[in-house]
Design a protein around this nucleic acid. Structure first.
Lengths: 178, 178
DNA sequence: TATTGTTATACTCTATAACTATA
DNA sequence: TATAGTTATAGAGTATAACAATA
């Protein structure tokens, strides 16, 4: 449990981080905004999945996911095949064109990061990634059920014991068992 | 200079951090969206300033700043007095009502952070704040002049020697000497 | 009845460009 | 001519609610 002074500083930094995200977004081609890039990236990384799973990975509402997915589907970058096991669902997967587009986006992003972070050490990049993953995880813990925050108290649920850098990564894949 | 694999991971984490920001934004009262809260926070922290300075601290265009400022001014949370030294400029400063509103927002944000990050150590919070500050600084370096990113190369300008945690904070205050 | 996904609507944030007033 | 700030317009991202189809 940190001091208020530290939380204030963290809140300021989080508020300011939007500028970095916009900077990275500016290297993307106009036909592929950040939302579309996120869809392609997650499908490339995790393989085919349903809408609901993608919505969880994106951490946005399903309606938002639906719009992003429609955008990339219209451009032929993904297929939306009906799920034989559940006709309400659709299975999303990259097309060859989508894989090519992902590679193009990835190259652009990697060049930008290599440019801006040229004087960062490997450890620093890793540390930041790990802390961001854990940050998202800490917020995800208390989001789904009741987002109510009790007056100046702590989470009442049993604390998920301190995460090792390796554990953090699992949050993405364990939150949707089905 | 880190490996592509690390940049990919960082890019994913940055893309996902929006969920955290939205989570924090949800604790704010409806009459004070995140943009307004940022204005109040920066004026509270840095004291009175001009629009152009605030736009830099917010890291958004002046037109965006103008809208956020108009919103908080309409609610009586700041004053916009003409600058006697330059009649084009306006000096922004918190009103007593604005200070009270800031305290209210601060309390809400602090409660939320204390809630979600209850199992974070002091060091971890500090590390994340420091790395985020440095991240913003690294992107700010190459933003103003020519945002062109040379094909797979590095910044050609003399590298600002590795920052200590303390140096990072100065970037906000040194970028606008006038 | 509950769940998956889509669509309609509204709101926030942002950038570009045109404009006013002043330096 | 250049700069500080405002406003109009457009676009991306998001959430809520109503809806259709299926479980």
């Amino acid at each position: 449990m940190a001091a208020q002074r530290q939380y204030e500083e963290l809140a300021r930094q989080l508020s300011a981080i939007g500028a970095v995200k916009r900077g990275l977004g500016r290297v993307l081609p106009p036909e592929c905004p950040a939302g579309s890039a996120a869809v392609l990236t997650l499908l490339n990384r995790h393989g085919e999945m349903r809408m609901s799973r993608l919505a969880e990975l994106l951490a946005v509402d399903m309606s938002v996911t639906s719009r992003h997915v429609a955008h990339v589907a219209e451009r032929g970058w993904i297929h939306r095949d009906p799920d034989p096991a559940d006709k309400r669902s659709r299975i999303l997967r990259l097309t060859p064109a989508g894989e090519a587009k992902f590679e193009e986006l990835s190259d652009l992003s990697m060049q930008a990061l290599a440019h801006y972070l040229h004087d960062w050490s490997d450890d620093e990049v890793d540390q930041l990634s790990t802390l961001l993953a854990r940050l998202r995880d800490s917020f995800g813990d208390c989001r789904a059920a009741s987002a109510r925050i009790p007056q100046s108290s702590q989470c009442s649920q049993p604390s998920q014991s301190p995460l090792s850098p390796h554990d953090v990564q699992t949050s993405e894949t364990t939150r949707t068992p089905a």
